[in-house]
Write a protein that binds this DNA or RNA. Structure first.
Ligand code: FES
Ligand code: FES
Lengths: 186, 186
DNA sequence: TATAACACAGAGTATATTGCTCTGCGTTAT
DNA sequence: ATAACGCAGAGCAATATACTCTGTGTTATA
């Protein structure tokens, strides 16, 4: 297994989609089905992104998620920490104080400050975090956009708009009122 | 829980002890009891260090472990990878190819090369590894030695030497007084 | 040569996490 | 009123963590 779970991959891909459609409201179901991942699983990770202030949720029919701030103000680190939680790289259990030569009463110098091993880990963790914070969602979205042919992004938007409309039409079918509607596309 | 398990903390502390006594053969039991950690647990992680070529084992009574290489040629990364295994930071499941607009047949451009998200993770992982490879066991041992008062290291060596000798004398002692463990009791 | 301490392989255990499934509730637009 | 939504939380199989314990084979020494 890897250190980051698959939720991080799903989440980041979803957020790139949201970044490519600024202002659009997309439901977690549509995002899941567009990408072929579990609807239920994605529905579990989005509340974490909301609590972290990365996306905002709108409830009710036609509800869904939007980025809570501009895509260039959301870093990969923000997303990883929101989804994985703030797991430290290393958790010191202060075994240095348990050394048998101290006989249960470690002297002050032995437990003062941070253990050398722990210090290395703290430094490594900060460097890792700095690197992850260097890339933003807009940076990622640009990379994807540069790679795909020009028609692709509009295809995706069309797929999502289709989904969005089919929800409106379900209402029309049920209530038997004319006039479908299309809005957004900021 | 943290990304690195407690085995890494135990292992690194043990290896520092071995680095401070170059050439000495120390058993995993002595290392465990000196530091107040589980003898059994430590006995499970040392074979991994041996397979990674960090430490060499000698069997039989008076057996134990020694560093296989000079302490300044063993990096923290070597130890972490030996104990934790080579877990990648991130495991890409290529969900980009599952996009619904491709209809099960992703075009070549979509799956060519490495996904942008994956690329960020690979870069971060390499930076983390570089940082962990920057510190060696001798660097860690120096840090500990600088912090401890002059008498401490010799105290530890004395404790270990005592243990080592008591094994030779256990033969004599076994005749004089009954050993608690093991109820053969002939 | 008997024996005790060792390395090492492996099974066993309790607990936690992962990835995913499913149910139920309150909210909201039509 | 209804259907789709967010969201909280239970459940679940598979895996991982941190140990614990047993058994086998090796080696130095009395
Ligand atoms: S005591 Fe925890 S890393 Fe040294
Ligand atoms: S497809 Fe795996 S990270 Fe993008």
């Amino acid at each position: 297994m890897s250190h980051f779970g698959s939720g991080t991959e799903y989440g980041l891909h979803c957020l790139i989609l949201l970044a490519q459609a600024p202002g659009a409201i997309i439901s977690s179901r549509d995002l899941a089905e567009l990408q072929g991942v579990s609807v239920y699983f994605l529905a579990k990770i989005f509340p974490r992104l909301e609590k972290a202030g990365i996306v905002t949720a709108s409830e009710g029919i036609r509800g869904g998620y939007t980025l809570a701030r501009p895509a260039d103000e959301i870093t990969v680190l923000d997303v990883v920490e929101a989804i994985e939680g703030r797991k430290p790289l290393f958790e010191c259990q202060e075994i240095r104080g348990r050394c048998a030569v101290f006989g249960g009463q470690p002297p002050a110098w032995a437990t003062a400050g941070v253990c050398g091993i722990h210090a290395v880990m703290i430094r490594a963790e900060r460097i890792l975090h700095d690197e992850l914070a260097r890339t933003t969602l807009s940076g990622l979205a640009d990379g994807v956009g540069r790679k795909a042919p020009p028609g692709f992004e509009t295809d995706v938007q069309a797929w999502l708009a289709d989904r969005f409309e089919s929800r409106a039409q379900a209402q029309i079918a049920a209530v038997k009122k004319p006039r479908p509607r299309r809005q957004n596309e900021t």
